[in-house]
Write a protein that binds this DNA or RNA. Structure first.
Lengths: 117, 117
DNA sequence: ATAGATACCTCAAGGTTCGAGGTATGTCAA
DNA sequence: TTGACATACCTCGAACCTTGAGGTATCTAT
């Protein structure tokens, strides 16, 4: 049951976009699907989230794009800029910092574990 | 540099509140400080975030509260209800699911690691 | 009475993702 | 040629969350 502004997902699309595009340039539609595949179908972000983010990241100089023709289809392919690489480093570090801190706080609070999902 | 709606923190205050209160009942002010301590000063949420959340969780039946007098001071002490325990299980599971999925997507995308912070 | 510490409260602002609704461009079948 | 379908892209209002600012209340000590 999803809701707007879901738990724990803030900033995740941006991190994943930067990470996956650092691996290889892709167009928007492919990116949506790659995120799903890369997370074993656990994470799925709609186009309504991904495209505005791609535009935003391009406007801020973290991504660059070019319309390319591949297999008879026209696509807008995005690549990470040097600035985007720096942003990836920051974001990835922040992710790890938060995860570590939360797990520390949860684990450090005692020994009880919730039942597995 | 903090900003409203910061990265990766959505839902974290609620998870930590439930977890720490499940460990022992506390008043709001103590909770703010306990979260900071439990995370080795890595996470800090202002009262402006914690109190409205405590009120919201109490309104929804996840927490109960009682004004108590301790050491000459009056405090509102919160406890987790059975309903709140269930919510903790859900939230904790969701946290673990998201962390696992993101790490899978990030790690699975290739072998490059960002420089350590 | 005032200062300081402890304890609690409220709210506007800014930003994010969801989901809905749409457009555009190719291929293929009828 | 037209329509269906798949691929590809776009926009926007709604809902929601945390930040940070500004405040109130209650205690002790001077």
């Amino acid at each position: 049951m999803k809701r707007s502004n879901p738990e724990f997902l803030n900033g995740v699309p941006e991190l994943l976009i930067l990470r996956l595009l650092a691996e290889r340039p892709m167009h928007g539609y492919d990116l949506v699907q790659s995120i799903r595949r890369a997370s074993n179908e656990e994470l799925a972000f709609g186009e309504g989230c991904i495209y505005p983010l791609l535009h935003k990241l391009e406007a801020s100089g973290h991504l660059s794009s070019r319309r390319e023709k591949l297999d008879g289809r026209s696509r807008v392919v995005y690549r990470v800029t040097a600035r985007g690489q720096s942003r990836l480093v920051e974001t990835w570090s922040e992710w790890r910092r938060v995860v570590q801190a939360v797990n520390q706080a949860i684990g450090g609070a005692g020994h009880a574990c919730p039942a597995s999902a």
